[in-house]
Nucleic acid binder design. Sequence first.
DNA 1: GCCGTAGGATGAATCGTTTCATATTTTCCT
DNA 2: AGGAAAATATGAAACGATTCATCCTACGGC
Lengths: 327, 327
Amino acid sequence: MRAGVSVGTVSNVLNRPELVAEQTRERVNATIAELGFVRNDSARQLRVGRSRTLGLVVLDVANPFFTDVARGVEDLANQEGLAVILCNTDEDPRKESSHLDLLAEMRVQGVLINPIDVSDGRIKALRERGTPVVLFDRMGDPTVECSVAVDDVLGGRLALEHLIENGHRRMLFVGGPFTLRQVQERYDGAMDAIEASGADVEMGVMTTPALNVVGGRLAGDRIAASGAPPSAVFCANDLVALGVLQALTHAGLRVPADVAIVGYDDIDFAAAAAVPLTSVRQPRQLLGRTAAELLLAETTETEHAHRQVVFEPELIVRDSSTLPTRT
Amino acid sequence: MRAGVSVGTVSNVLNRPELVAEQTRERVNATIAELGFVRNDSARQLRVGRSRTLGLVVLDVANPFFTDVARGVEDLANQEGLAVILCNTDEDPRKESSHLDLLAEMRVQGVLINPIDVSDGRIKALRERGTPVVLFDRMGDPTVECSVAVDDVLGGRLALEHLIENGHRRMLFVGGPFTLRQVQERYDGAMDAIEASGADVEMGVMTTPALNVVGGRLAGDRIAASGAPPSAVFCANDLVALGVLQALTHAGLRVPADVAIVGYDDIDFAAAAAVPLTSVRQPRQLLGRTAAELLLAETTETEHAHRQVVFEPELIVRDSSTLPTRT
DNA sequence: GCCGTAGGATGAATCGTTTCATATTTTCCT
DNA sequence: AGGAAAATATGAAACGATTCATCCTACGGC
């Protein structure tokens, strides 16, 4: 080679610099810089057997939840010198399949996935070929895989405990469809809190077709039109809560004086709403980071015990559920 | 091999199936399925010379602008069977550098980047090694690279034309710092519109330390406290606009009756605000998709002429700048 | 002066595909 | 039937790094 050195030595300079004499090392480095040499990662990969990438498969990056998770993942990956391959499935099993196939061909170090269907054979196949898979926002089988999630039941409980504590007795849960695990669990948690309180609490349910602002607005219109609004509304997520807030305000009801509102997710905009929204916050970035950590642990450790990490959400109290401090 | 066939034939089945007899093809495919064989992409890559990935380098995916761009990029990449490698720079040139280095080692097909510094030598180096680079949301040198951007000057003009048309004459621009290209250009566009109108329009400027809700809220408080509010406020982005809206409403000023507001970006929550926000919308997903298209064109075409695509933003009129239709 | 040793450098084998020149078989035409 | 042409299949070379057994050299001890 140009520096009067064999390729083996160059490889050593790059990977185990302590093995090579300082003088040679410097000469090689100088030549590398001079020629603008860039190692070909495919060749390295082929020899070593695995790539320096990790796959992240989510429903949709445009969803702020996944966006933050992706940030967390990327941060850790970055720190470890790994690259992140981003895949959106849009809840389409065919897309998920084809993404997983591509990731398998690439021999990624591991896959972080929010699976559409936990029992998908393709995930099992991946793992059987030796690629660690970590599930997030979904529980897996503890004997074969790691997973990270946030306790939605606890989140629902926190919300209702807060409302009950503040004296509310006539409540309404707004959200849907209940086929979404999140909706069901948040509702379950809410009911748990009611039961545990022992108080005489009434809890209605108003289902929405989807967890978005429009759904919330329609629900809010119905609440206002009913003539007998509840004293507090717990919404399955912040978008719904914002919709409800908007409709109620528009109908002349005051929040929180007439109706208190608690949302879920603590999206950025929750704090910026017309009436800052009380909401249940999930440690989203941490979720992603932890998932990535578990993945790396699985590739590194010889004796790896799969872990199911469950984070606790946190209630962020703002004006929408308490008497406003301003004014 | 197991199917009684040479490796060369297997390769043909995978890559040029029309060359191989149907019978053989089926037998090979059956064996592949049976053995769960997965092609090793590193080896393929090594032979072919480039990978089936493309790098996307943004300031921060958590920023909704980049999130949508990423979606657009991913959609096209997906369609072409490519994977997207996501990199966040956080405006740190060192992070940008190290990401670009990694992408170079990976021999990505190309890089889509929102560069911190357009004149960074590393981008030039990448291109010189034969990796196409497309800039987005930033103009490049038309002789060496493609770029896609949205015309912020036009966006500013659209906003002000709308306000002038609606009879407003005492205006205020809220945003900052002016070192951000976006802020400066949106302001320039606004001034262009005023000049072009020939009307006697007054335009004040209130700078904010950052383009966020807090900055907007502070600005809104100052506007309310001044005693002589303008009849319309044009904000450099929606977050600022939401902050202003919140502060004005809180101070008892009615929007749009007392003060009209126009924002910029048309983020999801613009429509969901207490008073739905008039805003300038950028075709963000299309921006990403187009950038990816240009990149692929550059890798495909023999005679590639670099193009600078500039998209036109669109004014979305809602209640915050017109007399409300609902009541 | 000889030998053992340790620190450095070397180069061939290897990873798993793709590609291409060549070999083999089949088809078709006269 | 004979032979040219078309259709298939083959196998070896190549891609560019890593790895490891081997080799070289200098040095110290006896």
